[in-house]
Simulated scan of single mutants.
Amino acid sequence: MVNPWAGEVEVVLNGEPHRAKLTLGALAELETALQVGSLVDLAQRFECGKFSARDVIVLLVAGLRGGGWQGNAEAFCRMEIKGGPIEAARLAAELLARAFTFPDET
Rank of each mutant, 00 (worst) to 15 (best):
G49V: 04
G71L: 09
E8C: 03
G15E: 02
P4N: 05
A53R: 09
R98W: 06
E29G: 00
E31N: 00
K21R: 15
I86W: 01
V11H: 12
F76C: 11
R19N: 03
F102D: 06
T106S: 06
G67P: 07
P17I: 00
G7Y: 13
R90P: 00
L13F: 13
A43N: 02
N14Q: 11
E16S: 11
G68S: 10
R45S: 03
A88K: 14
L96D: 09
M79I: 04
V40G: 00
A28Q: 14
A43G: 10
W69G: 07
A88T: 08
G66S: 08
D55I: 04
A53H: 02
L39P: 00
A28I: 01
A88F: 12
R90I: 05
R54V: 10
E8G: 05
A92W: 05
L24R: 11
R45G: 02
G84H: 10
P85S: 14
P17H: 01
E16P: 01
V9C: 09
G63M: 03
M79E: 15
E94S: 05
L30Q: 00
L96A: 09
L34I: 02
G84S: 12
L24S: 11
G67W: 08
R65Q: 15
A99P: 09
R19T: 14
E31K: 02
T32A: 09
L13P: 14
H18M: 11
G66C: 09
P85K: 14
A73F: 07
L59C: 15
P4E: 10
T32E: 15
L60S: 10
P85V: 13
E74G: 04
F51E: 13
E74R: 15
V56A: 01
A97V: 05
A92K: 08
F46A: 00
D104I: 05
A62R: 10
R90W: 06
A6P: 01
A92S: 15
C48T: 07
I81P: 00
W5F: 14
P17N: 03
A26L: 12
A92I: 05
E10D: 07
Q70T: 06
G7N: 11
G7C: 07
D55S: 09
E16N: 09
R98E: 02
L96M: 09
A33N: 12
F51G: 02
L42Q: 05
K50S: 08
G49K: 07
V36R: 07
L91N: 08
A88P: 13
E47T: 00
L60Q: 13
T32K: 11
L27N: 03
E105H: 11
V40Y: 02
V40T: 05
D55K: 12
W5V: 00
L64F: 06
R54F: 14
E80P: 00
E8R: 01
G37I: 01
W69Q: 04
R98M: 13
K50C: 02
V12R: 15
A75K: 14
I86Q: 09
S38F: 05
L59V: 15
S52V: 04
G63K: 08
V58L: 10
L96W: 06
D55R: 04
P103T: 05
G68A: 10
G63T: 06
L60K: 09
P17T: 02
G7A: 11
E105I: 03
